[in-house]
């Protein structure tokens, strides 16, 4: 089921939380939603789940508009809100049964679905405990179980791994990836590594506008532009090496990073690659390469670049 946002705008009073954004998510895609605090991530997610009504613009889930038929849209969405609200007084299993009934799961299938959720989310030992008695990580699992119980076509997760320990984080990521193969998933996160590990596509928004959209490789390439190499050349005088590097015609910039160890950072010209010319130069002068590493722009750098002002 595809999700399509068309010129979505949401204002609170005079403040534009989401400002005219449009994007589309296809079935089988896991979209990571990134942005600084208050960028409009949660507002966008709440609009998709029909909790908030757009001030203008439209959202379609599987071709159904949230403005015209919210109840039909809600049936296909599994949603884990950021604060993970739960009825603390209810035992886990009763809570899941309550949600199953609200989701109109046929009576004969309810037990099966609940058992499945308890297995998938690892709640076997806690199913009869009241939610109040659970730790934060287990509560998060209950939140995930209630979002998944009706086997939704679309999954919206607002910071799904907060409060989980590293093992659980890996489990949940695997689960999201598995679900994401057939379903449409949108997840928001503050942890860039997590988004990079789980998402096929990343969308960065800032002040209510989309500032970057693409896979993590694409984003990195976009931000970086030219190739950057970190190279250590030994066996010669470092100033001579520096001069020679500057004379290579594919190189646009040379920077001496650590003069004592003669490590340089080399930026190539547009579209050019400098590894081979450097190697040839060394061969010619009788120097040798101690190390050669391509410097990748990290997603953090991309994030900072597009959201800073």
């Amino acid at each position: 089921m595809d999700i399509k946002l068309e010129n979505l705008t949401k204002t609170y009073g005079f403040q534009r939380a989401v400002d005219d954004i449009s994007f589309e998510v296809k079935t089988g895609e896991v979209l990571g939603f990134l942005g600084p605090n208050g960028a409009g991530k949660t507002t966008t997610m709440k609009a998709i789940t029909c909790y908030l009504t757009p001030s203008s613009g439209n959202i379609q889930v599987g071709g159904i508009s949230v403005l015209e038929n919210p109840d039909e849209v809600k049936k296909h969405i599994g949603y884990l809100p950021e604060s993970n609200p739960l009825y603390y007084e209810m035992p886990v299993i009763d809570y899941l049964r309550f949600v199953a009934e609200l989701q109109c799961i046929p009576r004969e299938k309810t037990d099966e679905r609940i058992a499945e959720m308890i297995r998938v989310c690892g709640l076997k030992g806690e199913k009869h405990k009241k939610i109040r008695e659970l730790s934060k990580g287990y509560r998060q699992r209950v939140g995930l179980a209630q979002a998944l119980i009706h086997d939704p076509e679309v999954l919206i997760l607002d910071e799904p791994t907060t409060g989980l320990d590293p093992n659980q984080i890996i489990e949940i990521r695997e689960l999201i990836k598995k679900i994401g193969k057939e379903k449409t998933v949108i997840l928001s996160s503050h942890i860039l590594a997590e988004v990079e590990a789980t998402c096929d596509r990343i969308l960065i928004i800032n002040k209510g506008k989309i500032v970057a959209d693409g896979s993590s490789e694409q984003l990195r390439k976009q931000a970086q532009g030219n190739e950057i190499l970190k190279v250590q050349i030994l066996g010669g005088d470092r100033n001579e090496v520096f001069q020679s590097l500057r004379q290579i015609n594919t190189v646009s910039l040379v920077d001496m990073l650590e003069p004592d160890e003669s490590i340089f950072e080399i930026q190539s010209k547009n579209e050019a690659q400098s590894a081979r010319p450097i190697f040839d130069m060394c061969k010619e002068k009788g120097w040798y390469i101690g190390q050669l590493t391509p410097v990748e722009t990290k997603l953090e750098d991309v994030f900072r670049e597009v959201t800073a002002n």
């Binding site: 909790y51 809600k74 049936k75 969405i77 809100p81 604060s83 609200p85 739960l86 609200l102 989701q103």
Partner: peptide, 14 residues
Amino acid sequence: KTGTIEMLLTKPVS
């Protein structure tokens, strides 16, 4: 206060 209203209203209930 606890936000469970958001959970309810994003289920297919009016």
